[in-house]
Amino acid sequence: MFPHNASVWWVGAHGGAGESTFAKLLPGSAESHHTWPQPATPLPDGIPVVLTARTSLSGLESARSALTQWASGAVPGVHLLGLALVSDAPGKLPKPLKDFAHLVGGGAPRTWRVPWMEQWRTDPPTAPDPRGMPAELRKLIKSVQALIQKS
Rank of each mutant, 00 (worst) to 15 (best):
L67G: 09
M1D: 08
G46V: 09
L67W: 10
P94Q: 14
V8K: 09
P115Y: 14
G18R: 04
G82Q: 07
S62F: 03
K150Q: 15
A66Q: 10
S65T: 12
T52R: 02
P134I: 11
G106R: 04
A17T: 07
L97F: 14
L60A: 09
G73W: 00
L147Y: 00
V78H: 06
P76V: 04
A71M: 10
R110W: 05
Q149D: 10
L57Y: 08
A23H: 02
K139L: 11
M133Q: 11
P109L: 07
G132Y: 01
W10P: 03
V75H: 05
P48H: 13
E118R: 15
R113N: 12
W36M: 08
P48D: 14
V50C: 00
Q145K: 12
G106C: 13
L43K: 12
K139P: 00
S62W: 02
R54F: 05
P128S: 01
A108T: 12
K139T: 08
P134A: 13
G91I: 11
S151M: 12
A89W: 13
R110P: 03
H4L: 15
V49N: 01
W116D: 09
R138I: 11
H14S: 06
A127M: 01
F2D: 10
G107Q: 14
V49D: 06
I141L: 11
L140W: 01
T41W: 15
A66V: 02
F100I: 11
V49Y: 00
T122W: 15
S58D: 14
P48G: 11
P115K: 08
D88L: 08
E61G: 00
S65K: 06
A101D: 11
S29R: 03
K139I: 08
P3L: 14
M133V: 05
G59N: 06
S151A: 11
R54D: 05
P48W: 14
Q38W: 07
A30M: 11
G105L: 07
A89H: 15
K142Y: 05
A63I: 10
M1R: 11
M1W: 03
Q119L: 14
H14R: 10
A146V: 11
H102K: 14
A146H: 09
M1P: 10
M117C: 06
R54V: 06
G77T: 10
L51E: 04
P125W: 05
G91V: 13
S62Y: 06
I148R: 13
P128I: 00
G91K: 13
G73S: 02
P90F: 14
P125N: 01
L51P: 06
R64Q: 15
S65V: 02
